[in-house]
Design a protein around this nucleic acid. Sequence first.
DNA 1: GACGATAACTGCACTGAGTGCAGAATTGCA
DNA 2: TGCAATTCTGCACTCAGTGCAGTTATCGTC
Lengths: 208, 208
Amino acid sequence: MRLSFGTVTLRERKRERTRRAVVDAAVELFERDGYEQTTVADIAAAAEIGTRTFFSYFPTKEDVLFPEGDARIAAAVHAIATREPDEGPADVLLRALRIVGADSDDLTSRLAALRLRFIMEVPSVRGRALQLQADGQLQIATHLAAAFPDRLDPVTAAALTGAFIGAVTAALQMLVKDGHPGDPAELQQVVQRATDVALAPWSTRPRS
Amino acid sequence: MRLSFGTVTLRERKRERTRRAVVDAAVELFERDGYEQTTVADIAAAAEIGTRTFFSYFPTKEDVLFPEGDARIAAAVHAIATREPDEGPADVLLRALRIVGADSDDLTSRLAALRLRFIMEVPSVRGRALQLQADGQLQIATHLAAAFPDRLDPVTAAALTGAFIGAVTAALQMLVKDGHPGDPAELQQVVQRATDVALAPWSTRPRS
DNA sequence: GACGATAACTGCACTGAGTGCAGAATTGCA
DNA sequence: TGCAATTCTGCACTCAGTGCAGTTATCGTC
């Protein structure tokens, strides 16, 4: 058992490399042919692995679009863990949102764009995304309740987290539904409005 | 084109009867063998229709568990439409929740119990449920914005609706996750707490 | 009550996702 | 170098879902 952080053994490095190759191949094919038209066999062939092997890297075809797993959730949990003494639950959630919104989509932007597109277009992808979101919410709520044991029981923490994420998600959903492309400025403003709606009674610090 | 409300022609009545038979057969088999172990062919056979015909009644296997379609959403939309002059957006949402929570699960309780169970156990069912919820949210938000044109733009309405439904959903999810059966009293209390969290700054009437 | 039009039902053949298994290949470690 | 553990892969299989074409049942009309 290794303690160090990075992948070390040859096996693990090779596996990680292959995993990336699978994602890259999938992105390429999805962009070219679309989600439904691309079969798992196509992706496997492009990544030079057997079709059967694909399923040892990703449990389903949809999961190729979410290769980071719960990285965003981990970031949010970290934001909760490293809270300042004067931060309330709402402040922590806002900071977590800012962190998560900032980092995740730079190098990965092709994947992110594809993901957003298929979340809107393909039911099974949409379903998977919502499922991951719901699971993440619950995890965040659990950690939030643990971080504020005197102020939040688990159910209230879940309600707060659900209100927060639900507001942001629904606002963005409404925005893109009305044929809106990704205008960063307005996007920021919409998120601001949504968090205001959800967290107004909880904020203990001046709005940034 | 008929104007009357009920199903009239022989064709339509027969189709509705068969549809019910499919749902009943599915409930029976799902209860006995579980979701995954029951195939669409099994359900079709039990309902005495061809396997192919099943898919002319329900687009997917999961949809048998949601045969009412958007009845709950329609009820919520109706609650919005019939609002009192002194009701604000939050009051309307609360009333809609009360109506929706009250009516839907009486005769259908076997189906409802099965649905809840599979939403927790079966990923594809969970995904479908979340998808239907998200779509419903958006519809409710749209109607809410239309009902309060001077107070709510569509995006803010979506944020409000998302916060409200997100809070309730997440709170209930947390509750059932901790091995909680359906205790009506505590359930009511949890919903109360969740709505308080989400709607506190919006309520224009005293809490009931 | 018969008749053409229309809608529904059904079997057949097919695609594609996902699984279980068993053998081959590769890597870790002594 | 050699043995153990892991990974890769093909094969055969199940099941959801689709397209098509032929049959059957219902509708509205005369």
